[in-house]
Design a protein around this nucleic acid. Structure first.
Lengths: 206, 206
DNA sequence: CCTACCGATCGGTAGG
DNA sequence: CCTACCGATCGGTAGG
């Protein structure tokens, strides 16, 4: 009945990464503001104040999580797009990367979206900038496809929002134990995205 | 420099609806937990404790907002679907209603999504039930279209999630002053939804 | 509708 | 990594 969740003798050493991981889990399941430093410590078998040996503030924990999330998403999108090829191929790869991240890093994506307003300045503005960069990345592919005539004319901004939003939604309902495996999920979402820009995916394309 | 925002003499009478409206605005812009009863009162020109003449708790304010939101959405979906007709027509009307609500009631939709975990039981479970009902409503239309052969075979559950998620996203970025008017926005989203179930919207359908 | 206030919570620091 | 604790916040009640 101690406040410690784990026995001192068997407790693994506390590291910054362990603190961030415990914070992530609790921020995702119960929210940033409701989670206390004591809660995070308890998950690691220590008291709240002990965490300050590894991090400087609770806010820093949240900032770490959302920065890592956005940098990872942007890097994945960059890899998806850089190889070039037809716009349809680049769009498929970018959407698959987007969906794959939101399915495999549900907690990060969820926290990054829901706790945006829990960030203090200037972190919040920096994150919003990264999100804009990310949105512009997928929009550019759509605009390419429109400009080359590959995609029927569409409102690239609207479609990019719709594609990103539906992919972000995956983080809210996807469960690894569920009926969908991640590969077919990513493929299906990319299919939907290609249809949204006007392509018939039952035919020849990628 | 008083804590009151409005002068006592010109302040309109405080009503329950006024309290809910003020709470909605602040829950949307700053979050449920950060908003204090004193904040809500200040927006109406009164002190925090005075609000308890009109509401019984802060939690009740949130519950009022999310229940109204879900009931309104479900009623709008019901109206969109009840007239019958081809599945493509029903799907278009349901998506248009969905998008229209999220564009015109941004704050309600935003709070209803972000603050789900700020609800205490049993309210939270009741709201989750209403959300399931809503999702099943649009999924049923898609399944109808698949069963009748009107839509090419698609995973109805997946597509219904994607369509609802992209519509909910509208609440996060839409601004009435922006470049899109609500009618064309709703139309475009319904177009995308029809494409997602495999229809070619450049042709004959609705 | 007000002031005064209770009770509880929590991030972070002091000082081992 | 701990206990003790400070300072501040806030929902809700008492009693006008």
């Amino acid at each position: 009945m101690s406040a410690r969740v784990k026995d001192e003798k068997t407790r693994p050493p506390v590291s910054r990464e362990a603190v961030v991981a415990a914070a992530l889990r609790q921020f995702a399941e119960r929210g940033y503001r409701v989670t206390t430093m004591a809660d995070i410590g308890a998950a690691l078998g220590v008291r709240g104040p002990s965490l300050y040996k590894h991090v400087t503030s609770k806010q820093e924990l949240l900032a770490d999580i959302v920065f890592t999330t956005m940098r990872t998403l942007i890097a994945a999108q960059h890899r998806a797009v850089e190889a070039g090829g037809p716009a349809a191929v680049r769009l498929r790869r970018a959407v698959e990367a987007h969906v794959r991240y939101h399915a495999t890093h549900r907690e990060q994506a969820f926290v990054g979206n829901r706790e945006l307003d829990s960030l203090t300045e200037p972190t919040r503005s920096q994150i919003l900038d990264l999100r804009r960069t990310y949105e512009h990345g997928i929009r550019a592919v759509i605009e390419d496809g429109c400009a080359s005539g590959e995609f029927p004319a569409t409102d690239a901004r609207l479609v990019s929002f719709a594609i990103l939003d539906m992919g972000m939604g995956v983080a809210t309902w996807f469960r690894a134990e569920g009926e969908h495996d991640i590969d077919s999920l990513a493929y299906s979402y990319a299919d939907m995205a290609l249809r949204m820009v006007g392509l018939d995916t039952r035919g020849r394309e990628s």
